[in-house]
Structures are given as structure tokens and as C-alpha cells.
């Protein structure tokens, strides 16, 4: 089974992919902070912030459909909240858009504002993760003083996601091949719990063998990493562009 949906585009070779992970992480963080901090009622100016992630998706050859799907998957909670919020009474506001003028409830404006901001920051995060292999992300985080214990941990986690998802996929397929009807919640749940239990046991077994493999290669609990990535000219250029873009937008629009 292939899990291309998880990291389909992170192995690309475009200019965006080659930018240092640290620069990308910090840029995403800066973008998110700026966007989240924007005024609560504004809507139209926000679209200018879309240009940034949009440019990155275009340059990195990431299909917009993929981005859209990612954002949709992450959206239910915030959309429910925002929509609920829009029913709350608040004072109305005059909105002018082109030749049209209308009175809109402030809470609806805020709701729209939050959803757009959510799309923006999610796009930025997708832009980061879709153009950076997970191992580079970890390198970046390590350089940014995230503890090495957590880094190595995350590395192992990411490595074995694919393996264990395969295992549960196999269990589910072989179960559905033999189950002919719904057996009632209690019975079905027990069967599924047994699947989870045996995946847990095999996870524990794998971790024991991985532990042996680590010891065999001289691992003594001290985590040593090889970081060869250096900030180059193009990374600085990228960082400068991002900063200038954000500062200029913020200065012009507000």
C-alpha cells in the first residue's frame, strides 16, 4: 500500500523545496502571527495575503485541489463555531463593495473574517509542509532548539506511521473479506479492539527490535545529529521577500 497522500509533494525539486526549513518555518510562523493579528472586521484586504501562499503553491507545483482538500479536512470545527457565532446578535455595519452597499451584522463579518483567516493560515501551513520533507522539518526544528529527544522521537514516529497504517489496513481488509453482516455493536467493537490490541502488541515488539538495531549501531542514549544545512543566499532572499511582503501589506492596507 502506498501512502502518497501523506507526503506526495514534499520530495519535489523546485526552488521552494530547496529553501532551508528554518526559514520556511519562521516565515510560516510570521505569516500566521500577522494574519491572526489582523482586524476582526476586515475581509477584502485579507485576499492580498493569499498571494503569498498562492505564489508558493504555483512555484512548487502543488495542485490547488490538493490544498483545498487539506483545508476542507481541517475545517469542520472552526466553521461550525464561526457559523454558530454568526447567529449571535450584534450591531449591524455598513458594508460597501463596488456599487453595492449593504447592512451586515457585525457577527457575520467576524465569522467571515475568521474563516478567511483560517484559510490563509492553513494555506501557509500546507505550503510549509507540502514543500518540506518531514526530515528537513525536524532538522529545522532542531536548529531552533527543540529538544533532541523530541526530534528523534518524532523521526521514529513519522517513519513507522506508514508501516503501522499498513498493518491496520491489512487487518481491516482481511476482516472485511470475512465479515458478511453487522454483528451488533458489542461484538463488532470487541473485534476491533482485538485488532487495536494486536497492533499495539506488534508495535511494542517492533520497538524492541528497533531498540536492538539502535544498540547494535552504538546508540547509548545520547542523541547525536548531523546538521549540515547552512543558510545560503537564496534562503536569506526568501526570508527578506516574505518579510517585505508582510510588512508592506500590513502598512498599506492598515
Amino acid at each position: 500500500m502506498h501512502h502518497n497522500y501523506i507526503d506526495r509533494y514534499s520530495d519535489g525539486d523546485t526552488i521552494i523545496h530547496s529553501i532551508d526549513a528554518r526559514v520556511k518555518i519562521l516565515s510560516t510562523l510570521l505569516f500566521t502571527v500577522v494574519v491572526v493579528g489582523l482586524p476582526r472586521y476586515s475581509i477584502v484586504p485579507l485576499i492580498w495575503f493569499m498571494i503569498g501562499p498562492f505564489t508558493i503553491f504555483t512555484l512548487a507545483k502543488i495542485p490547488f485541489k490538493f490544498v483545498l482538500r487539506r483545508i476542507l479536512i481541517a475545517s469542520p470545527f472552526i466553521i461550525t463555531l464561526a457559523v454558530c457565532y454568526s447567529f449571535i446578535d450584534s450591531d449591524t455595519r455598513q458594508v460597501n463593495f463596488g456599487p453595492w452597499q449593504m447592512q451586515i451584522k457585525g457577527s457575520i463579518l467576524i465569522c467571515a473574517n475568521i474563516i478567511i483567516k483560517f484559510i490563509l493560515t492553513m494555506s501557509a501551513l500546507t505550503a510549509l509542509t507540502a514543500t518540506t520533507p518531514f526530515s528537513s522539518l525536524l532538522y529545522g526544528l532542531e536548529k531552533m532548539y527543540v529538544p533532541r529527544l523530541l526530534i528523534l522521537q518524532l523521526a521514529v514516529l513519522y517513519r513507522y506511521i506508514f508501516l503501522l497504517i499498513d498493518v491496520s489496513g491489512r487487518y481491516l481488509r482481511s476482516y472485511s473479506a470475512r465479515s458478511l453482516r453487522y454483528l451488533g455493536f458489542r461484538r463488532e467493537a470487541t473485534i476491533r479492539s482485538a485488532m487495536i490490541g494486536s497492533i499495539l502488541i506488534s508495535s511494542l515488539d517492533i520497538s524492541e527490535r528497533v531498540n536492538l538495531a539502535m544498540i547494535a549501531r552504538g546508540f547509548d542514549g545520547k542523541i547525536r545529529t548531523l546538521s549540515q544545512e547552512k543558510i545560503r543566499g537564496k534562503d536569506l532572499l526568501f526570508a527578506t521577500i516574505v518579510c517585505v511582503y508582510l510588512v508592506v501589506l500590513k502598512a498599506i492596507l492598515w
Binding site: F134, A155, Y160, L212, M214, G218
Partner: peptide, 25 residues
């Protein structure tokens, strides 16, 4: 030591990190 299942031996998310793991230690 080469273990039976390469999946137990390749535990890092990138091949190069796996190969450097031993020499670094």
C-alpha cells in the same frame, strides 16, 4: 548486525540519517 526485517533497521525518516546514525554514535 543486519537484522531480519530492514524496517527495524531503517528507523529514521530519511535514508541518509539512517546511514549516518551509526558513524555518529
Amino acid at each position: 548486525v543486519l537484522f531480519q526485517n530492514p524496517n527495524d533497521q531503517l528507523f529514521m525518516p530519511r535514508l541518509f540519517d539512517d546511514v549516518t546514525f551509526g558513524p555518529l554514535n
